[in-house]
Design a binder for these strands. Structure first.
Length: 677
RNA sequence: GCCGAGGUAGCUCAGCUGGUUAGAGCGCAGGAUUCAUAAUCCUGAGGUCGGCGGUUCAAGCCCGCCUCUCGGUACCA
């Protein structure tokens, strides 16, 4: 039935410019780990590959800011990240990094192969160059005024105010975000991977042969393929990265998105001399665990690279997750809005499994989800403690009490006993099915149902009542309760590896494999179990409050930082100032511009004339409330068409750090046309 | 703007190619119980399936328009 002989599981390489947080864990590493632990328990040939992504511009910038080398930065975070994963039991067969020699060699060689095969095209283009910083600028690192909506602070690739996609060269008054200087255009040569060439293949491969991929993944791919693919640059002008291994490429490195996925290959090479069987044998099933932001790279770009190279297999599935939010807001490294893994373990020592459980049970599989501390507490107290921990504890405590820790013989079984035993393989089967389809939240819920079954069984059969009247019956009941416990000790291992080990120790049941799951005689009569200890403990309100307080403080700090006024701009002459003709005007009419979020069309009495102005204030004011209002207006700004309407001037607004707008209005009514100077 | 995914109970989510009274877990209310970490077990209340319109014998599901959230939009990583 299964045409694959082995499985290669890769996890998105975390970017080594910060530690890892719960979003990383929930989206990628916990599901990947559950999956490979499950396969390993089934005795399948599987490897879990990971590593730090250590190239790219942000790392060089961080290094510059701190006055250290990029290598210092990545050494620091690679260490922290690697330790966090170890601490949380993410069972990598290898956790590597993209700055090591194997990777440089592998990535170089990969590029060279494609280059020699003529799989690249070379193009010379003009790009912005920051003379002060001495480097070319990615579009994202250029800011300026948006040519469409005139708002400042638009990025070179997109204006966030009006949502328009831009080219950096469209920006008015471009400025480098690295040094603040005005960038200049320079010619530069780069290598492009002609994705268009692979488009027919990709269409067939994804759209026809992989309809089973998750809707978000399939839809995103379809979107790209429908748009039509274009050649994509795979090199950058930068001094941090894998040098482009051809002549005439001095000062150029591989684009991090070209080198990072090759990191999966290099890591496998480091792991085993037999790496080729994982990457080149069609009997290998390759699975990429990633977040939704990486879909295009793993489904379009990397497969094109592998296909172009020619000897590699392609991924069989890419189960990308959506994003995890924290207490209603997006997780953000720069705003420190996150639960950092290394900090979590300081506050919740040895509670790795609790976090793993919560992140699995509430994983963002189909849509973005919210992590709240209250939910964390509830799931720990009401599910792990009350259902799983409690069941195991009551089964083991009763066994100690009645039989001094020796498993009793089952003897004769009632219909209800048999029914209960038959439910076990059913639960196992459902768990397996969910796991096979990457439905981890369903899988863990199903596994918990086994503990629920146990609780119900004990409640229904009441051995504590029969202890005095019918000792033979109690033996059967306790035998069954113990079989359920033993099953749980295996079934829970992929999800809660630390807890499962503890359980296995407690019942002297170690080193078992998945195939024993569902059986009813895992613990034989006469088998001795150890003294039970509690698997989970309650988490009290004050511990949760401490976490909430910490987040509240982060918010305060962020607000305070946002309140700092922007630095003054450079001086201008009085003449420059007098060039601006600013008047008081009265808003006569206002209406929303159809199909826009932010735009109002205003008719203004400027004293000189009545004119139309389009203003991006609709999120803060309704047309009704501003009718008749006196405002400041720049009347000699060159007219400009916005959404087809000619805007003749600009209303002056004061804007705070949160983007909130208020009018600059006269203190009391004054004649329209009055000059401001 | 364009493209994609999502909007179902107080919360977090299932819901197969359209088919009876729309499901689960948690929370809540009531009851039972005491082996167990006041844990467990049973029962129950709770929904205009984002909105409007359409197709159909029949719509959470199909079609159109609108709305909100998130992602992508090719040099952010």
């Amino acid at each position: 039935m299964n045409k694959f002989k082995r499985t290669l599981v890769t996890t998105a390489l975390p970017y080594a410019n910060g530690p890892v947080h719960i979003g990383h864990l929930a989206g990628v590493y916990v599901p990947a780990d559950i999956y490979v632990r499950y396969l390993r328990l089934k005795n399948e040939d599987v490897v879990l590959i990971g590593g730090s992504d250590e190239h790219g511009v942000p790392i060089t910038l961080k290094a510059k800011n701190e006055g250290v080398s990029p290598q210092d930065i990545v050494d620091r975070y690679h260490g922290i990240i690697k330790k966090s994963f170890e601490d949380f039991g993410i069972s990598f067969d290898i956790y590597s990094r993209t700055t090591n020699k194997t990777h440089y060699d592998t990535a170089s060689e990969f590029f060279k192969t494609l280059y020699d095969k003529g799989e690249f095209i070379e193009k010379e283009t003009e790009q912005y160059y920051d003379e002060e910083a001495g480097q070319f600028l990615a579009d994202r690192y250029i800011t300026g005024t948006c040519p469409h909506c005139k708002s400042e602070g638009a990025y070179g690739d997109q204006c966030e105010a009006c949502g328009t996609s831009l080219n950096a060269t469209d920006l008015i008054n471009p400025k480098s975000m690295i040094s603040g200087s005005v960038p200049v255009l320079r010619k530069t040569k780069h290598w492009y991977l002609p994705l268009d060439k692979h488009e027919p293949f990709l269409k067939k491969w994804i759209l026809e042969e992989h309809k089973e991929w998750k809707p978000n993944v399939y839809g995103q791919c379809k979107s790209w393929l429908d748009m039509g693919l274009q050649p994509r640059a795979v090199s950058r002008d930068l001094d941090w990265g894998v040098p482009v291994p051809v002549e005439g490429a001095e000062g150029k490195v591989l684009y991090v998105w070209f080198d990072a996925p090759i990191g999966y290959i290099s890591a496998t090479k480091e792991l085993t001399p037999e790496w080729e069987k994982y990457w080149k044998d069609p009997g290998t099933r390759m699975i990429h665990f990633i977040g939704k932001d990486n879909i295009v790279f793993h489904c379009i770009v990397f497969p094109s690279m592998l296909k172009a190279e020619g000897s590699y297999i392609l991924p069989d599935n890419v189960p990308a997750n959506e994003f995890l939010n924290l207490e209603g807001d997006k997780i953000s490294t720069s705003r420190n809005w996150a639960v950092w893994l290394h900090e979590y373990l300081e506050d919740f020592k040895d509670k790795q499994d609790v976090l793993r459980y919560v992140l699995t049970a509430n994983a963002p599989e189909a849509k973005d989800n919210d992590f709240t501390w209250k939910d964390f507490q509830a799931r720990n107290n009401n599910e792990l403690v009350a259902i799983l921990g409690n069941f195991v504890n009551r089964a083991l405590v009763l066994t100690q009490k009645y039989y001094d820790g020796v498993v009793p013989a089952a003897g004769e079984l009632t219909d209800y006993d048999k029914e209960t035993l038959e439910a076990i393989p059913e639960i196992v089967k459902k768990t397996e099915e969910a796991l096979d389809h990457f439905k981890f939240r369903e899988a863990v819920k199903e596994a918990m149902n086994l503990a629920r079954l146990g609780n119900k069984y004990l409640a229904d059969s009441e051995p504590w009542k029969l202890a005095k009247t019918d000792p033979e019956r109690v033996k059967a009941i306790m035998n069954i309760a113990l079989q359920i416990t033993a099953n749980l000790a295996i079934l829970m291992e992929p999800f809660l590896p630390f807890t499962a080990k503890k359980m296995q120790k407690m019942i002297n049941f170690e080193g078992k494999e998945w195939d024993v799951c569902g059986k009813k005689e895992l613990l034989e009569a006469g088998h001795k179990i150890n003294k039970p200890e509690l698997l989970f403990e309650k988490i009290e309100d004050d511990e949760i409050q401490a976490q909430l307080d910490r987040l509240a403080k982060t918010k305060e700090d962020n607000d305070a930082a946002a309140k700092e006024a922007a630095p003054a701009k450079e001086n201008i002459s009085f003449d420059d100032f007098t060039k601006m003709d600013i008047r008081i005007g009265t808003i006569l009419e206002a209406e929303k511009v159809a199909k826009t979020k932010k735009l109002l069309k205003l008719l203004i009495d400027t004293g000189i004339d009545k004119r139309t102005v389009v203003s991006g204030i609709a999120e803060y004011f309704t047309p009704e409330e501003i009718m008749g209002k006196q405002v400041s207006i720049l009347v000699n700004l060159a007219p400009r068409k916005i959404r087809g309407i000619e805007s003749q001037g600009m209303i002056l607004m004061a804007e705070d750090a949160n983007g909130e707008l208020i009018f600059v209005s006269p203190e009391k009514n004054i004649k329209p046309g009055s000059e401001i100077r």
